[in-house]
Simulated assay, not measured.
Amino acid sequence: MTDQPTAGNPPSVTAVIKFLKAAGFQHSRYTEAMRDDSGSGAKARSYSGGQVVVHWNEGDYDYRKRMGQLGITEPRDMPQHPDARTYAQEYAEALAPRYTVEISNGTDVYVTARETLPARPPGVPRAVSVRKALKAADVQHESVSAVDQPDHTRVAIRDEIALGPVRDALTAEGWIFEEFETLQHYGIKITGSTPDRPARLRKLRARREARAIELAGRAAVAKVEEGIRQTKAAEFLAAAAAEEVPQPQEPASAPEGLEVPLDQDKPVPYAYSPSGVRYEPGMRATLRTRDGFWAHGVVEAVYLAAHTRAPHMRFMADAYQVAPRRRAPKYMDNKPGKRGPAPAHTTPWEIPLDNKDLSPERFA
């Protein structure tokens, strides 16, 4: 049944900005404007008569960049930003279903309460349902947001790569939608549901259940394989503790037939890390250094350390590259730097195999 029309709420600066952010628009933040473009975005202020005024604010970073591109030295000579009017129109379009809006001077949007909100048609999903559907479809949640409008649900997609998966997910759910574009994101308005939505949902659930069974099977196989690797590593460590690890054919630290003293390293042909990775001379390895680099090189030797008999390896780095951050900020690329040769003064690395930053050679 169609929802009955109701009166709109009076606007506030907090409510307006919160809605615009959920609708995909950037909020102007002065504290960051000097070093990046996050200072540019929607800015709201209270006005007389219970109104809120919204306009697009150009941050200092973008302002000075534009000034340099135009070759202007005096701020009084700067023209208005060419996108300011377009932003005002986009803000007005997004706010109109829930507030009364009026554009003044082409750039200021005056927002007041609506006497009557538009009725919500039947079949329009709530934003929380849309978010759940997108999550179930494995759509990138960082680049997609959804917000309720009185007569539809608005979805904002900030990454073009996610646009196709969002379309597919909404179509599979049986929702009717239309697309549009803004200066900052792609938009979708969900306005209803298809008549065959129940049948679509049954098919979608069956497909997801089959996928869940397949993933569970893969996880079980991976768990068994990991158990095998752990067992091999434990067996090796136990043999090493009992001095049963076979000696290399040409031990460098002791004559034929003599044991290596406990105060000397004991060479071995191979060794396992606690995670089950086998390391041996000749293979290539990568170490993530504390200063944020990947060091790549050939393993020169594997040995049991003096006294502790813990497995170690020695390798000489022949290549370096900037390592990606362990946790990158949202919406930021997290790719490693370009690989380059190691410095001439590089010395061999002596690394215990239980070092969590050690791995077979990484390629990215």
Rank of each mutant, 00 (worst) to 15 (best):
T2S: 05
D3P: 15
A7K: 09
G8F: 10
P10R: 00
V13I: 02
I17G: 02
I17W: 01
F19S: 04
K21L: 04
K21R: 13
A23N: 08
E32H: 11
A33D: 12
D36E: 10
G49L: 03
G50Q: 01
Q51L: 07
Q51F: 06
Y61D: 10
Q69H: 08
G71M: 08
T73C: 04
E74S: 12
D77I: 00
R85P: 05
E90Q: 08
E93R: 01
A94H: 02
R98K: 14
T100C: 00
V101S: 00
S104A: 07
T116Q: 11
P118A: 05
P118S: 06
P121A: 13
R126W: 15
D138K: 06
Q140V: 04
Q149I: 04
H152D: 03
H152Y: 15
I157M: 15
V166Q: 04
R167S: 10
E173R: 04
F180T: 11
T182N: 02
L183V: 03
H185I: 00
I188F: 05
D196Y: 07
R197M: 00
R197V: 02
P198Y: 02
R200Y: 05
L204D: 12
A206C: 00
R211M: 09
I213Q: 12
V221F: 06
A222R: 14
K223R: 11
E226M: 08
G227Q: 05
I228R: 10
Q230P: 08
P246C: 08
A254G: 03
E259K: 12
D265I: 12
P267L: 09
V268P: 01
P269C: 13
Y272C: 03
V277F: 03
R278S: 00
G282R: 06
G282V: 11
A285F: 03
L287K: 02
W294V: 04
V298N: 09
Y303H: 06
H307Y: 14
F315D: 10
F315S: 11
A319T: 05
R325Y: 06
M332C: 14
D333W: 15
K338A: 08
P348T: 08
L353F: 02
D357V: 03
